[in-house]
Design a protein around this nucleic acid. Structure first.
Lengths: 160, 160
DNA sequence: GCCCGATAGTTCGTGTCACGAATCACGGCT
DNA sequence: AGCCGTGATTCGTGACACGAACTATCGGGC
């Protein structure tokens, strides 16, 4: 029952294809805001708080030199800023500029809106179930906080 | 109940972070097979059947010139081949070479194995539920078949 | 106080990737 | 035959990612 044959696909394909979908949304959204998806991702990470280069590399899964380049380009666009770390002269804190902060808010909100549309065909209960299952996968696999949590609930928990 | 506050995250964050996870798996898997994730994705698409350049662009969401480049590099690696389209002299069919086919099988199987490990903390029933929900999202949003379907079942139907 | 290994970041060179604009060549219609 | 749409390539540009080599500081041991 509920095997295959009908339109049913497996977990693996489901995960891969939904990831593909999310990537596409991210790319499209970034493009509209005049940034690349990598820079968009960087901005989203920095919305929570400033981070050092090493931390960023760990969170984004990038080599140090890649982070340097990414921050370079984003800094050139005026969206982030390197601030000296007061505790450690070697280290650097990467933080959003006011402009970057503004753009990040808008980009983040817009991207959320688009992603939220993906499961439009699901009922509120189903979305909750999905959120719960994905949440466990994410927790189990210790995904870094590459994407902030909305303060407001998903579909249930609509108020407060 | 089961709102937030505990480790619960929203659908949006769940989708984004699980996508991040899948991307990481794809990247790591590709790397081990000496290819890039884009080339790996191309191979996976071509496992089903040969495609024209235009079709590939549509499936992968790439501009035509991007496809030309990707196929160029992959061809240079001996994994795919451009064959003339018998119906249309202008057109080209991109197909796997024997070597590419072999690598694609291995890469695909290995990647599947890794992705399947992601929801290891979920019961068989939960995996089925997840597959079903993701399947509907994928269907509703008309995701191209960027990833083949396993002939064998998902988590239920594991035996036989 | 000095030395030395570990740590934080940058620089540099290379290759991949994606794109738009321009171009070429053929298909198919009128 | 003449034209326009389509399939694909070329070219130039910029972003991205990486490893290796390098600089500068930190921190612990002596």
């Amino acid at each position: 029952m509920s095997k295959h044959g009908d339109g049913q696909i497996g977990v693996v394909a489901g995960l891969v294809r939904s990831a593909f979908l999310v990537n596409a949304v991210y790319a499209e959204s970034s493009r509209e805001y005049g940034i690349t998806s990598q820079q968009g991702q960087l901005l989203c990470v920095l919305m929570a708080q400033p981070y050092g280069m090493g931390e960023l590399g760990a969170m984004l899964g990038l080599a140090k030199s890649s982070v340097t380049g990414l921050v370079d380009r984003t800094e050139r666009n005026g969206l982030v800023r390197r601030e000296p770390d007061l505790q450690d002269t070697r280290a650097v804190r990467v933080a959003l500029t006011p402009q970057g902060s503004k753009l990040a808010e808008e980009f983040y909100a817009d991207t959320c809106r688009r992603i939220e549309k993906l499961p439009a065909g699901l009922s509120a209960d189903e979305r909750d179930t999905l959120a719960s299952l994905l949440g466990r996968i994410v927790m189990d696999n210790k995904v870094p906080a590459v994407f902030m949590e909305l303060d407001k609930g998903t579909s249930s928990a609509r108020r407060q």
